[in-house]
């Protein structure tokens, strides 16, 4: 299982990585910007993309639309992890096709729950409890 974590904060990426490590057999690939994500997306098949909205250059909205329109990765589950500062941006990113929105700050359980909700195979694993 491979997940792409897009966030310009390296501490955030490290945090998400840490939480996912305990949540299942995830291979975490990090991108520190929208561009890096665009660079990685066509090259690898991801089972999940987690992205922030407020990033320099290409913002999360653009990234979501780009992904939804791309042929190869168009259906990948998209989880938005962002602060709740703009209601408008939040509504819009969901309109653009993001699957779920998780507001920062969140507890590890919240993230694990959101991921389990989006990626069924992991939720099945979770139901059996930790190995």
């Amino acid at each position: 299982m491979k997940v792409l974590v897009v966030d310009d904060s390296r501490a955030m990426r490290a945090y998400v990585r840490g939480v996912l490590k305990d949540a299942g057999p995830w291979t975490v690939v990090e991108a520190s910007s929208g561009f890096e994500a665009l660079r990685l997306l066509p090259r690898e098949a991801f089972d999940l993309v987690i992205t922030d909205i407020n990033m320099p250059d290409i913002n999360g909205l653009e990234l979501v639309r780009f992904i939804r329109r791309s042929e190869r990765q168009g259906r990948v589950p998209l989880l938005i992890v962002s602060t709740l500062s703009s209601e408008r941006d939040r509504a819009r990113v969901l309109e653009l096709g993001a699957d779920a929105f998780l507001a920062k700050p969140f507890e590890p359980e919240d993230l694990r729950g959101a991921v389990a909700g989006l990626v069924p195979s992991v939720s099945a694993k979770d139901a059996r409890g930790d190995e």
Binding site: D8, S9, A11, M12, N54, S82, T83, K104, P105
Partner: peptide, 15 residues
């Protein structure tokens, strides 16, 4: 704004 915004998110996450 972006700096403060990131800082808010981060320090919130890290309590």
């Amino acid at each position: 704004f972006r700096g403060v915004h990131t800082l808010k998110g981060l320090s919130g996450m890290f309590g």
